[in-house]
Design a protein around this nucleic acid. Structure first.
Lengths: 223, 223
DNA sequence: TGTTTTTAGAGAAATTTTTCTTCATATTTG
DNA sequence: CAAATATGAAGAAAAATTTCTCTAAAAACA
């Protein structure tokens, strides 16, 4: 098992989504060229990515859509249910508990945790809320493997430590800060500031290069 | 102006966040080594990243925290206000309108759009809701540059087209699908399925490699 | 059945990103 | 005031990722 390139892992769900829609439309076979076109990617890259999942395509025929979907789902282990804790039942946290599509990805929230006393003992979308100190014991007892952090930045490390104490295997961090954990714990940061930074910076750079492009065109016209 | 590597752009907000906290704690000068340590990165990488913002550090002293913060903010153009439209005032969309920290990044929601007739004419966190067909004309009139997509997948392309028609410069896409736009429009996808895929796949790979590590250790002990 | 066209697969090449090295310089210490 | 030390800068090297190129297989069509 070679390790999968990060960019490949991130592209796979996009293939999956596209393929599911194709299947709904009755498409049974599909070529890497078509996939690439639809997602504005290079067809070689699509093939390279799909190679990791183990599926084989046939020249001139392409891939079987159903087979491909299944292969991606299994590669990402989205076919098996994975129980998860949510830490921080605020704005974003509640929205996540209410998002029932997570099941499609195998993610199943079994409990949420918060410091707000008014929330303790209640339920949000049928998920019960507990105090944070319950995390370690409950995680061990219920064998929960994933912790989702939707807490403010200052509370992120404490929550992480509790999850690690509970023997959690992966942390999906939505708090706007890095957290530290032993290296065998998978940490996946999902911060909107990252993509916002890319967005705003690219706006400047695109502007600049369009400007340059326009200028060089003018020069070109002049000569 | 050389173009900035994607990973660099994504790391900058993390430096920013860390530096802000340092400043709060009264730290005035900081070295790339310290930053690297705090964020579990390589110090050379930190220096390379910071280089893009144009700041210069002094040997043995490091960087001035205030100066660094300012440089990053300006590099990301987060010091100037940028008006934005939000398309899709559902669960996630409402949460975003309510998140008042966006101001810190220069992002300012001036209007939201939805298809739900009950929402039209009302306000969410003081932001008025309109029908989608108003997008092009309003975007032009108000000179709005950013469109934030928090619609279901099937509505994403239509919304994108309307934004493009309105002369928008960048689209921040939270819908679980790719959208197409002319190449001068910056599109930044921010999909949780991407990081979830990375998370779940890494869990398997870490498991596998830990197992291998354990096995090779056993063998090592045997000989 | 033979020829042409399309496409997957494999590996090479190019590009991008990260890591490593060396060097000059500012600060600290004796 | 000189030596030691930590640090940033610059560029080289290495690693990772993407793109390109070629070959062979399958399908379409004559």
């Amino acid at each position: 098992m070679r390790i999968t390139p990060e960019p490949t892992m991130r592209r796979l769900p996009h293939y999956l989504h596209f393929l599911k829609r194709q299947l709904e439309n009755g498409v049974e076979k599909i070529s890497s060229t078509i996939i690439a076109q639809a997602l504005s990617l290079d067809s070689t890259q699509v093939r390279k990515d799909l190679e990791y999942t183990g599926v084989k395509g046939k020249p001139k025929t392409g891939f079987f859509v159903k087979e491909l979907i299944q292969a991606i789902l299994e590669f990402l282990t989205w076919t098996t249910r994975r129980d998860a804790f949510l830490i921080g039942a605020g704005n974003l946290g509640s929205a996540m508990l209410g998002y029932n599509r997570f099941r499609e990805y195998g993610l199943n929230f079994v409990a949420a945790f918060d410091t707000d006393e008014n929330k303790i003992g209640s339920e949000i979308y049928k998920v019960p809320i507990f105090t944070l100190d319950k995390i370690p014991s409950m995680a061990r007892r219920m064998n929960v493997q994933v912790g989702v952090l939707t807490v403010p930045a200052h509370a992120a490390q404490t929550a992480t430590d509790l999850l690690v104490e509970g023997g959690i295997k992966a942390i999906w961090n939505f708090a706007p800060t890095y957290v530290k954990a032993p290296k065998e714990v998978v940490i996946e940061n999902h911060q909107f500031t990252e993509s916002l930074a890319a967005l705003t910076r690219k706006m400047v750079e695109v502007d600049f290069h369009l400007e340059k492009y326009r200028l060089s065109n003018l020069e070109g016209n002049r000569t």
